[in-house]
């Protein structure tokens, strides 16, 4: 049993099924990612888990509390960072943080101390007295994250934390998320940025059309996605003439020659390198480098969702505008 357990969760809006009986669990201290295109059901799922939406069916248990029956108890131990920066425009950064802390019943002195600490941690001390509306997009995002952790929650829900901000701010936010992980926080993150999921998540669930199509650790997700193992050899000369000989010698392998000085050994099973290297050496061919070619998370995504990475990239660009 993880700290978060979701079973057969379902959400229907009229005739549209936004979330279709999904189940997953998150271990304590884990960064769990929900990866999928826009409209896949990521935000619908997060909204049901935090109490902003009522599930049509299923169960959500968070830290041993039934989140459907007793959401107010759950809200005491969770921090929420929505996909939009929803702090108060007229209030300054410091007051925004103090106000958010007050919603969790934190006494004045304590919340002021915590707000100062967070402004420092997020490099926003100088901007603390400026109204929120005067912040840049990246600063707004950072303050929104600070507001989500002001009450020191056990579990953190981040909905698209880096959407629509500049590269440097996105990098800083990813570092902050990893810092929070080091502090022992359990983190549930939704994203449609493949590289983001790859960098910060321990486990990833791929969600498409309201269904989880694959779930696992990064290694599990990327392992043998195409049912093949590939090894790329860097050589001192071309082996075009030897392709057939190699394939005949190693019957379970297929050989591809992508360019003059390299070749790909492809097999359904793990490839034993030594006999190949020996054969090449006997033919006077030197192998400078042998590298296992692993699929990227993007390859996995395309494979399991059937959605082209270019489509996701377009969405990413649209969201960034």
């Amino acid at each position: 049993m993880g700290i978060v357990n979701v079973t057969n969760l379902k959400k229907v809006y009229g005739e549209f099924q936004a979330v279709n009986e999904i189940s997953f669990s998150i271990e304590q201290g884990e960064v769990f990612g929900f990866l999928g295109p826009n409209g896949a059901g990521k935000t619908s799922t997060i909204n049901m888990m935090i109490g902003l939406s009522k599930p049509t069916g299923g169960h959500i248990m968070i830290d041993g509390i039934d989140a459907i029956k007793d959401i107010k108890q759950v809200q005491k131990i969770i921090g929420i960072i929505p996909d939009e920066n929803n702090l108060y425009d007229e209030m300054n950064g410091f007051n925004n943080l103090c106000f958010c802390a007050s919603l969790y019943g934190i006494p004045k002195k304590e919340r002021e101390k915590r707000a100062m600490e967070l402004l420092e941690q997020f490099n926003l001390t100088k901007a603390g007295k400026r109204p929120f509306k005067a912040y840049s997009k990246g600063m707004k995002r950072k303050l929104t994250i600070a507001a989500g952790i002001i009450h020191n929650p056990k579990i953190l829900f981040l909905d698209e934390p880096t959407t629509g901000i500049d590269v440097e701010s996105a990098r800083q936010i990813r570092e902050l998320i990893l810092d929070l992980k080091k502090q022992g926080k359990t983190i549930f993150i939704t994203t449609h940025y493949i590289e983001e999921a790859e960098r910060i998540c321990d486990r990833i669930a791929f969600i498409v059309n309201g269904k989880i199509v694959k779930i696992g650790t990064l290694t599990e997700s990327m392992e043998n996605v195409e049912g093949e193992h590939k090894i790329k050899l860097q050589l001192n000369s071309s082996i075009k003439d030897m392709k057939e000989e190699l394939e005949n010698s190693f019957v379970n392998c297929r050989v591809e020659i992508p360019d003059e000085n390299s070749c790909l050994i492809i097999s359904k099973e793990r490839v034993a390198l030594f006999p190949i290297l020996q054969l090449l050496d006997n033919k006077g061919i030197s192998v400078y480098e042998a590298k296992a070619i692993k699929p990227s998370l993007e390859d996995v995504f395309v494979k399991v969702t059937g959605i082209e990475a270019s489509k996701l990239k377009k969405e990413k660009e649209k969201a960034g505008k």
Binding site: I50, G51, L52, K72, Q73, Q75, K76, I80, P82, E84, N86, L87, Y88, D89, C100, L103, Y104, G105, A147
Partner: peptide, 14 residues
């Protein structure tokens, strides 16, 4: 409209 009201709905108060 600015979704700041969501903060209040998500706070652990009735």
């Amino acid at each position: 409209k600015g979704r700041s009201f969501d903060r209040l709905l998500l706070a652990p108060i009735s």
